[in-house]
Amino acid sequence: MIERFLPVASTYAGDIDFVFDLIFWTVGFWFLLAQGVFFWLLVRFRKRDGVRAQYVTGELKSEKRFITIPHALVLVCDVFIVFFAIRVWYDVKQHLPEAQQTVRVVAQQWAWSFVQPGPDGRLDTADDIKTVDELHVQVGTTYHFQLVSRDVVHSFSVPVFRLKQDVIPGRVITGWFEPTRTGTFDIQCAEICGIGHGYMPGRIVIETAEQHAAWMASHSNREIAAASGPAAGGR
């Protein structure tokens, strides 16, 4: 259902949507049923001439079942939801598939910046590609991301991936994603991080292998040229 409003662009986005839908419909069913019974009771037992109101203590077995039976059924639904939620949580947050690429995501007040390996395929070497506001990735590739913060707590949120992960100063938090469709999508900060929080825009550009190779080549050249000259650094 949510995919009608927000594209699905990662391998696990569909699983998260499934849990979302499961919760929505399960809770929605009980909500509508409870409201239906409530209004039916209001109408059915409305004020009538000659009929006195009765105070129900809820102590009789015949009365208690109106609480205990729905309660048990709701608990069964809870277990059902938790079972699927834990399975998805494990796949997204606990399980770390082998990476084909690793990128570093740097959060600060109030910008996202990114470091990705250059042609040598390794981070923290001279050919690293550093960008601000834009992360370029290749579709169909499993990425590990290393989240670091330069100042306060942020939250790395990519809605089309259904990914949200807090960024904690002093810690390197590793997670993963695999993009499944090309396009340009939002990266947001999902944790209030100061007065500029709402103006902390980032974009993720998901490219085909050819497009990504061309982007890498253009940026690698520029970085290597910059690194070899006196004007080293910068985007």
């Binding site: 109030w110 910008a111 910046s113 960008t131 330069r150 500029g196 910068g234 985007r235």
Partner: peptide
């Protein structure tokens, strides 16, 4: 610029 921490604070 990636290394301009203060500048990125001004950007918003």
């Amino acid at each position: 610029n990636f290394d301009d921490v203060a500048g990125m604070r001004m950007r918003p």
